Amino acid sequence: MKFGNNLRIKTATSWLPPGHETVEDAVTAGKLAASDVERLGLTQLPVSAQWSGPEMAVAAARDAISRAGWSPSKVGLVLHTWIYHQGHDMWSPPHYVANELGTPDALSYAVQQGCNGGAMALQVAAMHLAADPGLGAALITTGDRFLPPGFDRWACDYGLGFGDAGSAVLLHHGDAGPDDYALVSMATETAAELELMLRHGDDFSPTPLWHNEYIDLRRPKKSYMAVHGKERFSEIASRSIRKVIVDSVHDAGLRLDDPRIKYIALPRLGTGLLDGIYMPVLDEVLKAEALWFGAVTGHMGCGDFLANLADLRDQMPLEPGDFALVISGGAAWTWACAVVQVPEERIPEGDV
């Protein structure tokens, strides 16, 4: 999916709470096995003692609006995405984000696609803007808080730890002002058969947390692997990751070995998972340097993708004209890859 030259990411932000829990503290408390430390690659996880997921999303959104120098009234679309409890039952977090930000008339809705939600929401927003030239701008937010007793951030899944955070991106038709990136292209690939991984061995339940006192993703995955083997998932994942990279680069009008493609930002999974699933594909198809920003954040749920856009801007020496890829995946299962470019010049007023 190619977006052309005038769809711009005005800015991207992430918001982390001040509290954190170190790996050493988690091991000492019996929350994390010492044998798991190396394959996680983490030093700590951010922990929110006060703020809910939607509140952290609003904090990130306010930072984005401030950084852009915009009035909130410019935003006509608010998309919010998350994977865990948002603080209230039978409630609409996207409308909360819009109301708190001062955009109560903006079309507001949720995008649910597991941990790929941030990437998918960006693509949905891009399609809105492409179809509606009168839409001023879109705001995409994510926010999650992974607290017990319903969630064990260190042990609910294999090979990753979950960090509390919010993130935000502002997307718009380019104008004469500066932008972080041009959104050049995106590609997605779905393997819906893998939804079974997250429910294998369990009947459909009448209420949440019916099968376990906390969300335990290891149990159904272990059951699935016992029947289907690890190879099936690895084959599908590798093929899908390769396809979204190749397709997004092709749609951007680039070659895989184009020297202008400087980096690819990876999901904030544990380094063991990345080495086993992502890196073999990257070593085969791409010359760009792979980046992992997860050492002090862990996996931010839907927020990895948007936060990676912010960290690419702030931490890497990208120059005007340079390209970067951002890749994401979410159970169960869709993968996405975006190609962004640091704008070489602002769009002239007459071309907006």
Rank of each mutant, 00 (worst) to 15 (best):
S73H: 02
S92M: 05
P54S: 04
D25I: 11
E38K: 02
E24G: 10
H85Q: 13
P18C: 11
L45Q: 11
L79Y: 02
H88Q: 15
Q44M: 14
G30R: 04
S71L: 11
T81C: 14
A61V: 06
H128G: 08
S14E: 12
M127S: 13
Q44K: 13
H20M: 12
A137H: 03
Q112W: 06
A98N: 01
G69I: 12
Q44G: 03
I65R: 09
V78A: 08
L79K: 03
L77A: 04
L101Y: 01
E38M: 01
H128F: 12
A121F: 05
A64D: 03
V58G: 10
L135F: 09
E55T: 05
V97Y: 01
P18M: 09
A130H: 12
S66L: 09
L101H: 02
I83M: 13
A106K: 01
L122N: 05
G118D: 10
Q112C: 09
L129N: 04
A138G: 09
S14N: 13
R62C: 08
G87L: 06
L129S: 04
A34K: 11
Q112K: 13
M90N: 15
N6D: 15
I9S: 08
P54M: 04
K74F: 12
L16T: 07
G30M: 09
S108C: 00
S52P: 00
P46G: 06
H20G: 12
L40N: 01
L77G: 05
L122A: 07
A121Y: 08
V37F: 05
P133Q: 08
D25C: 14
P93K: 00
P17I: 06
V23L: 09
V111D: 02
H85K: 13
Y109H: 02
H85N: 15
P104S: 00
P46V: 06
I83C: 14
A64T: 06
A106R: 02
V37Y: 06
V75D: 09
V78H: 02
T13Y: 07
G102T: 07
S71M: 07
D63M: 14
H20P: 07
R62V: 10
A138P: 07
P17V: 09
V23T: 15
W15E: 06
T103K: 02
H20C: 15
Y96M: 08
A125T: 03
S52G: 01
A106H: 03
P104A: 02
K10M: 14
A59I: 02
V58I: 13
S108H: 00
G134N: 10
A57V: 08
A121G: 04
D89R: 12
D63S: 15
P93R: 00
A33D: 15
Q113S: 10
R67K: 14
A137N: 04
K74E: 15
V58M: 06
E24K: 07
L101I: 06
S108K: 00
G19N: 13
D89W: 15
V111R: 00
V37R: 09
E100C: 05
H20R: 13
G19C: 08
Q50Y: 12
P93A: 02
H95N: 11
T22Q: 10
A119K: 05
M127E: 15
I83N: 07
N116Y: 07
S92E: 03
A49S: 13
Q123K: 12
T13V: 08
D132M: 13
G87Y: 05
W51I: 00
G136M: 06
V75T: 12
A110K: 03
G134S: 11
